[in-house]
Nucleic acid binder design. Structure first.
Lengths: 159, 159
DNA sequence: TTTGATGCAAAGACTTTGCATGCTT
DNA sequence: AAGCATGCAAAGTCTTTGCATCAAA
């Protein structure tokens, strides 16, 4: 799992991906890799500055873009619901980011727009059920090479 | 198919969904239902005004929200790539909208961020392959009710 | 030392909102 | 006639960019 990531490993990881290792990048990557919810740039920035980390919002954006370009993170579909939630937070808007590599399944709350990982075992069952044959057929018919899947279950709390 | 939608049908459809039938709403819905790519609000607005339809961008947004709330359209995950394409268009940014009801599969170009429907037959094969059992297991374990799936194949043109 | 990252602030894009006016029902 | 939709413009977010400064390699 990517959860436990201490300094030396991180600096190696960055080096392997051609990224300089700075305090800010370590902080952003660490914060991203540690959660299984999928924060927006703004949420990450608040989270980090609340913990005493000083860094500018622009740097969070730049860092996230660097991480995505180098393959250490991915940008997910953004838009949650349009309206601010009861606490006044506009929690749904803005792109969300994810440091988990490889295909996995997300679940989005239809009410709050929050995005989470489906626990690995369950998500894997889902992915395993997809026949490669169908994917190949789609690739062939449309003349494309499928790079990865993005699967989202939109769900409400059970009644 | 929803493609062929003329006036009287549209006014009935709106009425059934509790929406007033105005020139602008007909235009927006018609434009949305007619394509299988998934335009942003801005793209729709440009498309409509280019065809001589006069309407404000705010109305396009308001109309799309009304359509979504009444169940005639859905908002899709927005974010394509961050950078404007070669023609200077920032084609990827902004929410995309879809007038097709029910689950279906999208394909997104990893380069341009453009979103399209996977042709119905192929998409259906994909969806049919998902075992209900796994979905029920997820619902049970997480205590949720899955409303719908959002599946996106991120792909590049075949080499 | 060289090169790339950061911070700040400003610019830009996307989206929502308030209010007067007009149109559907 | 009543009430909702429209248009406009203004305000609010979210995101990117330019440039001077600073830090990693």
């Amino acid at each position: 799992m990517t959860g436990k990531m201490d300094q030396p490993e991180l600096s190696e990881l960055f080096a392997r991906h051609g990224l300089r290792c700075t305090r800010q990048r370590k902080a952003v990557y660490h914060a991203l890799a540690r959660t299984c919810d999928h924060p927006t740039a703004g949420q990450l920035h608040r989270q980090l500055t609340d913990r005493g980390q000083s860094m500018s919002l622009a740097t969070v954006y730049n860092t996230l873009e660097a991480l995505c370009k180098s393959g250490l993170a991915q940008r997910l579909s953004g838009n949650g619901p349009l309206t601010p939630d009861s606490t006044g937070n506009t929690s749904g808007s803005g792109s969300r980011y994810d440091a988990t590599l490889g295909d996995h399944v997300h679940i989005r709350c239809a009410c709050t727009g929050k995005l989470h990982d489906v626990p690995h075992g369950l998500g894997q069952k889902f992915l395993d059920a997809i026949p490669k044959r169908v994917l190949e057929e789609i690739e062939h018919d449309l003349g494309v090479k499928v790079d990865h899947l993005q699967i989202e279950l939109v769900a409400k709390p059970a009644q």
